[in-house]
């Protein structure tokens, strides 16, 4: 079912731990969405979160940049550290944290502004550019990183909402990259895209791995197998299994993981 050669070829170098989570619990009002999740996410690696709908993978992802803070009824307990710094510490400003931990959403959500202003949005807020020329450079660099520069360089001042779905998503990735984050979280970034746009975004993800630690939530196991080095399988709010992608897909240790991957549950 999966391209075994491709998986075997992939070299998984031992990296530093970028994000470590310890006994993380999340409650939405009465319901217990995440139960005692422990995970250590490596730097310069693509980590995929897979699992059936409602298993808590997106919720956990949104804990890493404290996006859950914007939801009133959500309560997070436990310990999440980035570079060994507790991000739920009182001293940490969630707004600053989100500049460091970028996020790409399920549906492309460019602002109703020009392509240029979409990219310049984050740098402007955080004062990253000293001059117009500086900003131009940031915009070009980000768009190049987002693998969309060649397509939009002649119409930087056209509205971002006028692009195609795949282009919009790459624009959103470029927008997230523009604030120079250390971690990039992607919540099902390809679920609203067609196969061609998906493969473009997947290539981009592989490219971004050189500079960032990426965490990607996906419903497609093929996608997880294609783009990630590490895979975490979530089921009913618990982290069932976490390991090298090759191992998870070819030789899972947990019965539930195997059932899910072979399509018996999910």
């Amino acid at each position: 079912m999966y391209d075994d050669n491709h998986l075997a070829e992939r070299t998984v170098t031992q990296n530093d731990i970028k994000i470590s989570a310890n006994k993380v619990n999340v409650h939405y009002g009465e319901s217990h969405a995440i139960k005692d999740v422990d995970v250590a996410i490596e730097d310069k690696t693509v980590t995929a979160f897979i699992g059936p709908s409602g298993c808590g993978k997106s919720t956990f992802l949104r804990c890493i940049n404290r996006m859950n803070d914007t939801i009133d009824i959500c309560r997070v307990t436990g310990d999440i550290r980035i570079d060994n710094e507790d991000i739920y510490d009182r001293k940490v400003d969630p707004v600053q944290l989100r500049a460091k931990v970028g996020m790409v959403f399920q549906k492309p959500n460019p602002f109703p502004k020009s392509i240029y202003d979409n990219i310049a949005y984050g740098p402007r807020i955080h004062g990253l550019a000293r001059s117009k020329a500086d900003m131009d450079e940031i915009v070009e660099k980000s768009l190049r990183r987002g693998a969309i520069w060649d397509e939009v360089k002649d119409r930087l001042h056209a509205p971002g909402t006028g692009l195609s779905g795949g282009q919009q998503q790459r624009l959103c990735i470029a927008r997230a990259v523009a604030t120079e984050p250390e971690v990039l979280l992607m919540d099902e970034p390809c679920s609203a895209l067609d196969p061609i746009a998906t493969s473009q975004v997947e290539e981009l993800i592989d490219e971004l791995r050189k500079n960032y630690s990426l965490v990607i939530v996906t419903h497609s196991m093929q996608q997880a197998a294609r783009v990630s080095q590490k895979t975490a399988f979530f089921h009913l709010g618990t982290l069932v299994e976490y390991g090298d992608t090759g191992q998870i897909f070819t030789n899972p240790t947990d019965e539930r993981t195997e059932s899910y991957i072979t399509g018996r549950i999910g």
């Binding site: 996006m67 600053q96 989100r98 460091k100 549906k107 959103c172």
Partner: peptide, 15 residues
């Protein structure tokens, strides 16, 4: 205005 607009902005570290 769709919530995704706000999420996008919060996700970039805007207040």
């Amino acid at each position: 205005v769709p919530q995704s607009m706000r999420d996008g902005s919060f996700g970039l570290g805007a207040t």
